[in-house]
């Protein structure tokens, strides 16, 4: 699949923002006044910035409001509704904390639960896509949730939770890669089932239907950069999990160190999310003699 920057930024940064809001909703850290304002401002900038980024890949973004209507069947619609509900609930909660020095615990708890559901909604947009077997698996929601919650813990200064989260994220990411690498073969779709010509024999593409790349190939048969996947996985994993974990565990805590660790973590998250798209193979690639 084409790793569109708008979608990579959307999933990574809105995940971080909602992860941060989840911890703020639970009163971690228990801040008020201007400090609380700064925390909420960062969280909202990330969450809303990510959501706005997601509209950059739309063909007709002026009609984006219509996307809130089909929550009965569409995970994209559900994600949109959940995101708005979360931002409203957390907004009211933030107003109480910032301006009235009152923390409404139940509202925060509801907001935190909505944050988790929103990230789950984002992950389900990809998980539901059966045509991309790598995504169509329970590891996808777990990976998305672990990214959002670990990043959220990181940005709200929850050192213990972050350290545990960084280990979890590493294990889940490796698990997702190991399982994901076998998913396409396990789906049973081949050029023979795609064309139905397997009953005659081994099939290969003889002539493509068009002479240069079309929308389908640009969007769903993305193979550029896949040869670097192995190296990028290692770089991504080190930046995402290993390096920040080591910085938190083995060095005396300082804010500068935390900033370096967070930047490494986010750079790692962007790298692995790029791979999440670039390595994903779509069944339509079979018609072009390429596995997505």
């Amino acid at each position: 699949m084409h790793p569109a920057p708008s979608i990579i930024f959307f999933t990574v940064f809105s995940g971080l923002g909602f992860g941060m809001l989840a911890f703020l909703g639970l009163g971690k850290p228990d801040v008020s006044g201007f400090t609380a304002f700064v925390f909420f401002a960062i969280a909202y900038a990330l969450a809303v910035g990510g959501l706005i980024s997601s509209t950059f890949h739309l063909g007709n973004p002026q009609r984006a409001l219509k996307a809130f209507s089909q929550w009965r069947t569409s995970w994209l619609s559900r994600e949109g509704c959940l995101a708005v509900a979360t931002l409203i609930v957390m907004g009211l909660y933030a107003i109480g904390i910032i301006f009235f020095n009152t923390r409404i615990g139940m509202l925060g708890l509801l907001g935190a639960a909505l944050c988790v559901l929103t990230v789950l909604g984002t992950s389900m947009i990809y998980t539901q896509i059966k045509t991309v077997p790598r995504w169509h698996h329970w590891t996808t929601p777990l990976v998305f949730l672990s990214y959002a919650l670990t990043g959220g813990a990181f940005l709200t200064g929850q050192v213990q939770i972050t350290a545990a989260g960084l280990v979890t994220i590493g294990i889940l990411q490796i698990l997702a890669w190991v399982i994901g690498d076998k998913r396409f073969a396990a789906s049973g779709s081949t050029i023979e089932t795609a064309t139905g010509l397997g009953t005659i024999g081994k099939t290969r593409m003889f002539e493509a239907p068009h002479s240069s790349k079309n929308y389908l190939m640009k969007e769903m048969v993305h193979v550029i950069g896949r040869k670097h996947a192995r190296n990028l996985r290692i770089i991504g994993l080190v930046l995402l999990s290993l390096l920040p974990w080591a910085l938190l565990m083995f060095f005396p805590f300082s804010h500068m160190l935390a900033v370096v660790a967070i930047l490494a973590h986010v750079a790692g998250a962007l790298t692995t999310r790029w791979l999440f798209f670039a390595e994903a193979e779509h069944t339509v690639g079979l018609y072009y003699g390429q596995r997505g």
Binding site: G59, K66, A67, S74, M220
Partner: peptide, 17 residues
């Protein structure tokens, strides 16, 4: 249609452009 492209992703056959 907002042109999000999700339906084209969901189609196994590449029938939508």
């Amino acid at each position: 249609c907002i042109g999000c492209g999700l339906c084209a992703w969901a189609c196994p056959y590449g029938a939508r452009e």
